[in-house]
């Protein structure tokens, strides 16, 4: 038996919105510690790793490990029916073929209940393991989203060049070129506006703009995004949850 109650439906809504355009369905792996997902997009370029730790929930129990195969488009439609501020409880019996979803309005005496048919998903997992990191950039997630959108008008690739004191985002396309430079900044009054760059080794990596467009759909989940880059390796883009994370691993583009 799994039962997890979110204080606000908006959190699960944001998580599903951030994932559903990249992967159509995925397995939710539920254990006593929380719920995790690993899913790869069809082109096997972008991997999503989600961890919703037990502490994220107002109430949580999972007596036995269960795997719930979920169609994200369908889940999105159902959870779209609840108000952002509703309590949202998901539950499933062991060996269940459906996920029970209940919204409770905090003001009105109103309870809405839905069942989502579960899917049997046979997905092979990638062993991403712990990765070395050459450069780590933390910046406001809205700023990163704007950089990705602005650079996408120029090219289908975004180049990220990190040196000791700056990160350069560069696009070179048929119509012209664009550069955006950000530098570390500590904002004591607004810590969420701070930018940090830590570097062991300079980085010069390129990523596909269309995949970055998928990643920035997670912007509303966290005020900050942490980008971990390693030479000749996939980039990691992490949005922290109140307890857990939504992480994207994006394979780079190399010169032919």
């Amino acid at each position: 038996m799994l039962e997890g109650k979110f204080e606000e439906a908006s959190l699960l809504k944001k998580i599903v919105e951030a994932m559903k355009d990249c992967v159509s369905s995925c397995n939710f792996n539920c254990t006593e510690n929380g719920i995790s997902v690993q899913a790869v997009d069809n082109s096997r370029v972008l991997l999503i790793s989600l961890l919703i730790e037990k502490d994220t929930f107002e109430e949580y129990r999972c007596d036995r490990n269960i795997t719930l195969g979920v169609g994200l488009g369908s889940l999105s439609k159902i959870i779209g029916n609840g108000a952002n501020s509703d309590y949202l409880t998901i539950s499933a019996d062991d060996d269940a073929d459906k996920l029970n979803i209940i919204f409770e309005d905090k003001v009105k005496d109103k309870i809405s209940e839905y069942n989502l048919k579960l899917l049997d998903i046979d997905a092979d997992l990638l062993d991403v393991g712990p990765m070395d990191t050459d450069a780590t950039i933390t910046l406001p997630s809205a700023d990163f989203a704007k950089i990705c959108k602005d650079m996408k008008v120029l090219s289908e690739s975004l180049q990220i060049i990190v040196t000791k004191d700056s990160a350069l985002f560069q696009s070179v396309g048929d119509i012209g070129t664009g550069n955006i430079v950000i530098r570390p900044k500590t904002d004591i009054d607004h810590p969420e506006e701070s930018v940090t760059i830590s570097l062991d080794k300079p980085i010069d990596l390129s990523f596909g703009s269309k995949y970055l467009s998928d990643i920035i759909k997670a912007t509303s989940l966290s005020q900050k995004v942490t980008i971990k880059l390693t030479d000749q390796s996939p980039g990691v883009f992490e949005y922290k949850l109140p307890s857990g994370y939504l992480r994207f691993y994006l394979a780079p583009k190399f010169d032919e």
Binding site: S43, V45, D127, S206, G208, A251, K253, E256
Partner: peptide, 14 residues
């Protein structure tokens, strides 16, 4: 022109 790599080139399948 740049070539898009896939994750399978970096991570083994479990």
């Amino acid at each position: 022109k740049k070539k898009q790599t896939t994750l399978g080139e970096f991570f083994p399948t479990e």
